[in-house]
């Protein structure tokens, strides 16, 4: 029972921390934010790998295999694309000076 209560506390607490932090993210970064949180939701990879912590039979190991592959795709793809996107956001000093003319 203690575990269940603890899990609920974790759920509610992190939701509110997340809510508080994310409501202050500027619209400029909404797309990268979404793709990063998307990658974070790929944390199901932990649960997917845990499928193999028991002796698994044919169909279950097949399902586990797909789950691990999909979750990895989510994690790696998500973080990579976020990095690529953020790398494109530039602040060009030369343009700045031309601007103020």
């Amino acid at each position: 029972m203690f575990d269940i209560i603890l899990m609920f506390i974790v759920l509610v607490l992190t939701f509110f921390i997340g809510y508080h932090l994310i409501s202050r993210v500027p619209p400029l970064l909404h797309t990268p934010l979404m793709s990063m949180t998307n990658a974070i939701s790929g944390i199901t990879i932990l649960a997917a790998v845990l499928v193999f912590s028991h002796e698994t039979s044919g169909p279950f190991s097949m399902i586990g295999f797909i789950a691990v592959a999909l979750a990895t795709l989510n994690v790696v793809g998500g973080f990579t694309i976020t990095e690529r996107m953020l790398k494109m956001f530039k602040k060009n000093q030369e343009n700045q000076t031309g601007d103020s003319r």
Partner: peptide
Amino acid sequence: LIACGAMVAAS
């Protein structure tokens, strides 16, 4: 998993 899921849900 719970913590990360909750943060993503909030986002």
